[in-house]
Design a protein around this nucleic acid. Structure first.
Length: 106
DNA sequence: AGAGTGACTCATA
DNA sequence: CTATGAGCCACTC
């Protein structure tokens, strides 16, 4: 039930995440900041609540470039696999190189 | 209404 | 880098 005025915080998160171009990633804190809040947790919860594949949740990582440990759709491995498929190199099974792939809002 | 919980982040060790 | 504690704030019960 989102009014255009009061769009759910979650909906905004989805919109932002959908805007992340392929080959890039964003952090929870970054998104939170764009939305005008400090609480990155809500961003994470928004993605957790969302099951929609339209939202590339795999492109959202934490400040260390680490992927979700367990709560991702098919598991962090699937998330990692998708990132690799988009051309993002992982430093290990659960980490991406933010210095190369961090999305900057143009 | 209050307590518990959390896909986070920061400071500190 | 990891581990803890504290801060943050919406959601669920």
């Amino acid at each position: 039930m989102e009014n255009k005025n009061t769009k759910s915080f979650y909906s905004k998160v989805y919109q932002i995440v959908k805007k992340i171009p392929p080959g890039k990633v964003a952090t929870y804190g970054q998104i939170a900041k764009i939305l005008g809040t400090r609480d990155a947790r809500r961003v994470g919860h928004a993605l957790h609540a969302n099951k929609d594949r339209l939202v590339p949740c795999h492109r959202v990582v934490d400040k260390n470039g680490r992927l979700a440990p367990n709560f991702a759709f098919e598991g962090s491995k699937e998330q990692a696999r998708r990132l690799i498929k988009e051309g993002i190199a992982l430093t290990d099974e659960m980490h991406v190189d933010l210095s190369l792939y961090l999305w900057k809002k143009v």
